[in-house]
Amino acid sequence: MPTNRRPLLENWLTRVLGTADFTLAHAAADAGARSYWRVLAGNRSRIVMDAPPASNDLAPFLAIAALLRDAGITAPEVLAQDTVQGFLLLSDLGDRTMLQAIDAGADPEPLFEAAIDALVHMQGIAMPTWLPGYDASLLERELDLFPDWYLARHRGITLDTREQAVWFDARTRLVNAALAQPRVFVHRDFMPRNLMPMQCADQGGIGVLDFQDAVAGPIAYDPLSLVKDAFRSWPLERAESWLRRYWERARAATLPVPDWPGFLRDADWIGMQRHLKVIGIFARLKHRDGKAHYVEDVPRFFAYLAEVLPRYPEFDEFAAVLARITPTRSDP
């Protein structure tokens, strides 16, 4: 937290809580400018979001939090807000994410079961008209992060004329495929780091965080994000077993998923879009925002791409371009 915001936050909390007798402990930070702090006052724990207003708009978070909670999804309750200063006081869903629980040795199977249940529930939400669409412009801007930030800025690579044509062909195919999928509520970062195992007797299952960028978009996006995590990889067979489990439950819930081969293709292709986007985002975080550690996970995404590209001959030329530039672990 910037030092000039700490007094503002403490003064606001004193007014909201009605006491200055509280402690603040860092809880989490994300890739943006937001940070999260655990507020302990008496025997109660809450979370405060610090979202500097110059770089954050709290309106989407507030609207989507209400949408999720009204639909019965476990999401933080907004207890107090100051959108001018950029502070939210939220209910505390716990101090260990699904990813942290797995890294600490928890059995991933029941956690993925709960996450899949929450996802199917979330995708059944009737989408409000104000929810932004995952349209062609947004898909293209995200994909362009790969050549602009990863290739050009991070690696100093310039594609030749033929390679540029291959890139634009792949880009067009991925955008068109994404737009052709059935549209549902899309969290856009539905992965174990943003999911909270709930242990309370009245709150089983999984809590959902970091949903402020949600859109109406391709049905395979969030299931793919869940099993092809940004910070932990699973064997392809296991990831696809979870993906099929999602598909079975989605069909049982009458969500608009195609047959299994069609859904797997949709997941593979929207996965390519996400993997390329995230590679570009991680490079931008290093070079624009000074957050260098994210690029250490870039090889994971090239590995994800290499897993599925051989399935689709229409991407053979693109796969050859990627093979030339795939980084080693020593040079992400």
Score class of each variant (00 low, 15 high):
Trp242Leu: 10
His287Thr: 08
Val298Leu: 02
Ala303Glu: 07
Tyr304Cys: 01
Phe302Lys: 09
Arg238Leu: 10
Arg265Asn: 04
Trp260Ser: 10
Asp297Gln: 08
Trp247Thr: 02
Trp260Asp: 13
Asp259Thr: 14
Ala292Asn: 14
Ala239Asn: 09
Leu285Phe: 15
Thr254Asn: 14
Ala292Trp: 05
Arg244Asn: 01
Leu243Arg: 05
Ala239His: 11
His275Tyr: 11
Ala306Val: 01
Trp242Phe: 12
Arg274Val: 08
Arg274His: 09
Pro299Cys: 00
Arg251Cys: 11
Leu243Gly: 04
Arg249Lys: 15
Phe315Leu: 15
Phe263Lys: 04
Phe263Cys: 04
Val321Ile: 13
Asp289Tyr: 02
Asp289His: 10
Tyr312Phe: 14
Asp259Asn: 14
Phe302Ser: 04
Val278Gln: 08
Arg311Trp: 09
Pro261Ala: 00
Glu296Phe: 02
Ala250Thr: 03
Pro258Phe: 03
Arg245Asn: 12
Gly262Gln: 15
Ala320Trp: 06
Leu322Ala: 07
Val321Cys: 07
Ala292Val: 12
Tyr246Leu: 01
Tyr304Trp: 03
Leu243Thr: 06
Trp247Met: 02
His293Gln: 13
Phe318Ala: 05
Tyr246Asn: 02
Ser241Pro: 00
Lys291His: 10
Arg244Lys: 11
Asp316Leu: 11
Asp268Tyr: 15
Phe318Trp: 15
Asp289Glu: 11
Gly271Arg: 01
Ala306Phe: 01
Arg311Cys: 09
Ala306Pro: 00
Val298Met: 03
Thr254Cys: 12
Arg284Gly: 13
Leu255Met: 10
Ala250Gln: 05
Lys291Trp: 06
Trp269Gly: 06
Val298Thr: 06
Pro313Lys: 13
Glu296Leu: 12
Pro261Asp: 00
Ser241Phe: 00
Ala283Gly: 04
Arg244Val: 04
Pro310Cys: 10
Gly290Thr: 03
Ala252Lys: 11
Ile281Cys: 12
Arg284Asp: 10
His275Ala: 08
Arg300Tyr: 06
Arg265Met: 13
Gly262Thr: 14
